[in-house]
Design a protein around this nucleic acid. Structure first.
Lengths: 108, 108
DNA sequence: TAATTTAGCAACCACAAAGTTGCATATTAA
DNA sequence: TTAATATGCAACTTTGTGGTTGCTAAATTA
């Protein structure tokens, strides 16, 4: 479908998914779909859909045990976003820095 | 509508908007809507919509001069995303670190 | 074996989003 | 003043998204 970083961006762009992801990260052990759904005001299938999106982005891994599927958070894909942002860090303290460095280059 | 960080996340979650944003960041001066549109295989109105989304997220500021509207990139809102991610940095080198630190707490 | 629990799949709904075209309007240039 | 340029606004289409309900199937418990 779309490229990897876009999948990660879209996955965390939804507030509900950020909440689910956060719940999984701070959980002391893997949570089943039903366990997650019980923490949110949403149907189990709604949670399943979000989990699928998170899984597609690599932010959640599934582990089937019997009839249950346990979800684990995996923060690694966030590294890609961090990497994407490093380029823009140089600009975020001064919105005119791009022009500034451009002029610097011309005068040096 | 939605909270600020969600707006920023959604704004940069779209590949086309990331491209537009990047073009504005590296531009040596502000670009008009038409100038931006000429760089993309998209109608001017399509670009206008994206610019509005970026503006809503604070990633672009507009400066009207005569009949033209010049766009400037502003990377500052990305700081919020960076801040959001700092919490998860501790987990992204080992997906089991959450469990690990949990166990550490219990045994110390 | 029968009942319960966990979950997937499919269909559906409402709305948002990405993009288009057409038209009106204001500014600038000829 | 007429023509050209830059833009906004509105309407529309298509596709994606967040969420639901209903049903089926597999695994567990009684």
């Amino acid at each position: 479908m779309q490229d990897k970083i876009t999948q990660v961006f879209k996955a965390i762009a939804d507030p509900t998914r950020r909440e689910i992801f956060h719940a999984l990260v701070i959980a002391s052990s893997a949570l089943s779909i039903t366990q997650i759904a019980s923490q949110f005001d949403m149907s189990r299938q709604g949670v399943t859909k979000h989990i699928k999106t998170l899984e597609g982005a690599g932010l959640v891994s599934l582990d089937t045990q019997g009839r249950e599927r346990f979800c684990n958070a995996n923060a690694k894909p966030l590294k890609e976003i961090n990497k994407w942002m490093t380029f823009y860090e140089q600009f975020w303290d001064d919105s005119l820095e791009n022009l500034g460095s451009y002029l610097d280059d011309k005068t040096s």
